[in-house]
Nucleic acid binder design. Structure first.
Lengths: 180, 180
DNA sequence: GTCTATAAACTGATAGAC
DNA sequence: GTCTATCAGTTTATAGAC
């Protein structure tokens, strides 16, 4: 509900009604509306960070790592779309509050991991040195974030396939080589 | 203010204060809060559609058209960041109301224009036929939309340069050719 | 065209009965 | 653990003086 309507626009009465109790009863379980937001986002940030760390630490080829990181990023859309949407839509407002500082911390650490992998690829001579690692990371991140607005999961159209199409375009481009 | 805090979270008192009048006086100029939203978005959609149509109709090379369309899309971030953010954050909520149906119409028409240009490029043998035009469009669109969250305009770092870096990655990829 | 004043509804949160 | 009942504050919007 926070993701669909926004945090401010979602009332505690609506939240209570969605689980079949009244607004007053909610306060037996949570101290405030923002405690609910915190419970959703803190867990999401923790597992996201842990999963990325695991992929980066693995003994894989650099390009394979980029593929796996892209695949994981897209899998978040399927596994926790609400948290992704909340951070995307209201992250900048939330991260101004001290209790949500971990949003900034997580974003910074994830960005650093992506950029480090791209830089390694450049050193290995596999990635063109004129590619800006930050721009590359942002294209991936924003493509993932944007996919939440149009991706509808079906058995025939899995999120893995979309991740594969996106990383293929980013690795190889769309142009037919050698033509001018 | 709608873009920064969200439409629901922005009060008519805050809007009035920002232009030096009280909330009551605002209703001499606008019938409701959503009339203000409408005034911002309707104008934005109209000029965006017109500009894209002009680029597509021009007598340019297909790849040049893609470059110009990407450049124009990024220029919207600099010219009207508020409207872009409002549509990005609350577009799906707004477009459920009948008065904001033009948001859906505009989005559909813009997407069709992008896809048509990519398909032309495939027919001309310049773009690989295995590229999904929809996925390509969405990568561009979401990269543009996402840039609004990190791009800070400075004389040294113009939005045109970012547009050029993004389209270069999408056209050519990041890999060094021929390596395996 | 802006003001004062206020209506009418809604908001997050609390206290205490059951 | 949920309820009733309600507080105190805020919200959009209106009516009428200036």
């Amino acid at each position: 509900m926070f993701a669909e309507r926004g945090i401010k626009a979602t009332t505690v009465r609506q939240i209570g009604a969605s689980v079949g109790i009244l607004s007053g009863s909610l306060y037996h379980h949570f101290g405030s509306k923002f405690d609910l937001v915190d419970a959703i986002l803190a867990d999401f940030c923790e597992t996201t960070m842990a999963s990325y760390s695991e992929i980066v630490a693995a003994d894989d080829d650099t390009i394979t790592k980029l593929r796996r990181m892209t695949g994981y990023a897209f899998s978040l859309i399927g596994d926790n779309p609400a948290a992704v949407l909340m951070i995307q839509n209201e992250g900048s407002m939330l991260s101004q509050q001290s209790r949500f500082q971990y949003l900034n911390t997580t974003e910074r650490k994830v960005e650093t991991m992506w950029i480090d992998v791209v830089r390694t690829g450049v050193k290995e001579g596999r990635i063109r040195p004129d590619v800006d690692p930050r721009i590359f990371y942002r294209i991936v991140r924003d493509s993932v974030a944007g996919s939440i607005r149009w991706y509808k999961p079906t058995p025939n159209h899995k999120i893995d396939a979309i991740a594969e199409e996106v990383i293929t375009i980013l690795l190889n481009g769309i142009l037919v080589p050698g033509k001018k």
